[in-house]
Amino acid sequence: MLLAQLSLNALALGSSYALIALGFVLVLNATGAVNFAQGDAVMAGGFIAIAAASFFPEAFNTYGIVMLPIVLVGTGLLGLALSAVAYLPLRRHPPVTVFVSTIAVGIILTNSFNALFGAAPRATPPLLGGGQTVLGNLSLSQQSLAVIATAAALIAGLGFLLHATQLGRRLRATAQDPEIARALGINVTRMICLSFILGTALAGTAGLLLANQFFLTPNDGGVLMLKAYIAVAIGGWGSLRGAAAGAMFIAFFEVFVATWLSHPVAEAGLYLALFAVLLLRPQGLYGEAVQRRA
């Protein structure tokens, strides 16, 4: 029984991590640069939901799902702003420069939210309600199920966008080779901005999903970003499938080791696992999807 419940928790946590990691890879593939503000986008999404909840009448503000469109739009705009200030002015510079500029945006976000909301942990409302669904002798958390369903819907939507629409083909072409894409008449700048919007909005949604069970503070961006980063490194730099798989791996590792031993041990173990992967298989468990830029 415990095993089933833990697995459900891990699956819910993993689907939130997957959203963060997928967003990270979208930006990575479009720009070749690491977006260090990805964790802060998660945090921003959570706090936008918390802020929005206070504007709704009582009848609605216990349902997190109502905040979803607001979070998507809010963090989408944040992504657009991020690309405008931290990427576009620096696109001719080496990738490390973008690394530093997104760190700067991360600092701005962390400290602005700290000033606005204070450093105390806050929680978002559950998506549909906080009850349990009883299935035989299994008692399943409705929030976990709703998180999995929401993340699955978003990932499916992303898959549809990328593989079944003209816009998705343009996005993928840009990710594969911006020069050729430009030569084919694709507006590369617009595609890059769109990648930032999508990537940040996915992260923001993860904030809404995560911050119900795991309380959120404005300073949590760094750790969340590190997890997305590890998921992408484990899954193979630049691979969407690998990122999702890496996110699931991290979540299962965390949930089970934390239950079995303790939370600090789980976290330390995760870093050790990362070192092992970097040392033994620098191309990631699934192989490298993008050419490394020397």
């Binding site: 690491v34 990738p95 490390v96 690394f99 750790v223 590190l226 980063y229 590890i230 490194a233 730099w237 600090p264 976290e267 330390a268 870093y271 050790l272 990362l274 070192f275 970097l278 040392l279 620098p282 490394r292 830029r293 020397a294």
Partner: peptide
């Protein structure tokens, strides 16, 4: 030996994980 042969983004990640590990150790 483990960290320096990595390229830019991996190097940043590995050193970040190193610092998180040391921080974790200091707290616990």
């Amino acid at each position: 030996t483990a960290v320096l042969r990595l390229e830019s983004h991996y190097l940043a990640l590995a050193t970040l994980a190193l610092s998180q590990s040391v921080l974790l150790l200091a707290i616990n």
